[in-house]
Design a binder for these strands. Structure first.
Length: 313
DNA sequence: CGTGTTTGACCGGCGC
DNA sequence: GCGCCGGTCAAACACG
């Protein structure tokens, strides 16, 4: 995540009646209200006050989130600087560790590590092809992506909800990590070739690292309560996240799930959209989508605009 | 009974 | 060629 190219995600909600009316004729404005899902609204003074208060609250929350994001960026940059220094000091050590990696692992490192998911794309190959024809796989590499999810430290499960339905087909303790690695296939297999590996981070046991291979060739199923029935799972579908727009560093999405209250509150209001490899533009789109599908945000926005219009009249 | 998980066995790639 | 290791299979098991 290169924060030098970090965009300002704050929302300018300080809409003046002039700008609104200049940009949009009144009829268009009303149509936009309808498109926001508001069919009618009363403009009573008390509700306006209430909604203005709500707007203030949302603005403050937005500001808070922006501050948190900037702190995360700063921490990331500091960490990255340290890593660069360390790597420049110990180049042979780095080489020796990577050379020990198996071929597939090293190819993973070279491949595009994109956001949480790949969504639907044209480069997917069938399961049979990817399994039985390794030479073709060399030509058409399955898209690899990685996602990190912070879970409760007491949570020992390896279930990571990401909107898709997975079937666990194996678990293994690997050499470099005492925590077992779980192997999942998309439940639409074999028609959908996507696989997922989930393992806890060596450094941070509360961090779940999921590696996705391939791309879903089907739309995302309806949100499920749990993929395993255990009830202890981490969800990727509707959580605030930070993404790394850097072109050099692996693009890994890190999510903090330890504070789950807000997730729960907004769970039904978000479309799970994590299939955006282009960051930050798509991140912004994702955030915008999340906001525009949030009824609370819509109400606050409509209230703010209507309130200003009333003041103007 | 259908579906999903667990877990030991097996397979194949890679390094020595 | 051998051993190590990650990935996968499949029978047994659990659960609703």
């Amino acid at each position: 995540m290169d924060c030098s190219s970090y965009i300002n995600t704050s929302l300018d909600l300080n809409i003046t009646p002039y700008t609104v009316q200049q940009i949009l004729p009144k009829k268009d404005l009303e149509n936009n209200f309808f498109s926001l899902g508001i069919t009618s609204f009363s403009l009573k003074d008390e509700s306006i006050d209430e909604l203005e208060e709500e707007l203030k609250r949302v603005t403050a929350e937005n500001k808070k989130l922006v501050e948190m994001l900037s702190v995360v960026c700063e921490n990331y940059n500091a960490l990255r600087t340290h890593l660069m220094e360390y790597m420049s000091r110990n180049p042979e050590k780095e080489l020796s560790t990577t050379s020990k990696k198996r071929k597939s692992e090293s190819s993973n490192n070279n491949s595009n590590l994109i956001g949480v998911n790949n969504g639907n794309s044209e480069t997917s190959s069938t399961d049979e092809e990817s399994c039985k024809k390794p030479r073709e796989e060399e030509i058409i590499k399955p898209k690899i992506s990685r996602a990190c999810v912070r879970t409760d430290a007491s949570d020992t499960g390896l279930i990571m909800k990401d909107g898709y339905h997975w079937r666990k087909y194996g678990q293994k303790v690997t050499r470099d990590n005492p925590c077992p690695r779980a192997y999942f296939k998309c439940s639409f297999a074999p028609s959908c070739p996507v696989k997922k590996k989930v393992q806890r981070s060596v450094d941070d046991q509360s961090m779940l690292v999921a590696t996705y291979e391939g791309e879903h060739n089907h739309p995302q199923p309806a949100p499920l309560e749990s993929t395993s029935g255990s009830g202890r799972s981490a969800s990727l579908s509707s959580i605030p996240c930070s993404a790394s727009p850097s072109s050099t560093a692996p693009k890994v999405v890190t999510l903090d799930l330890t504070n789950s209250k807000s997730n729960k509150d907004s769970k039904n209001n978000f479309e799970p959209r994590k299939d955006s490899p282009k960051v930050p533009k798509n991140l912004v789109e994702q955030m915008a989508t999340s906001l525009t599908t949030d009824p609370n945000f819509r109400a606050a926005l409509v209230a703010a605009i209507s309130g200003r219009l009333m003041h103007n009249n």
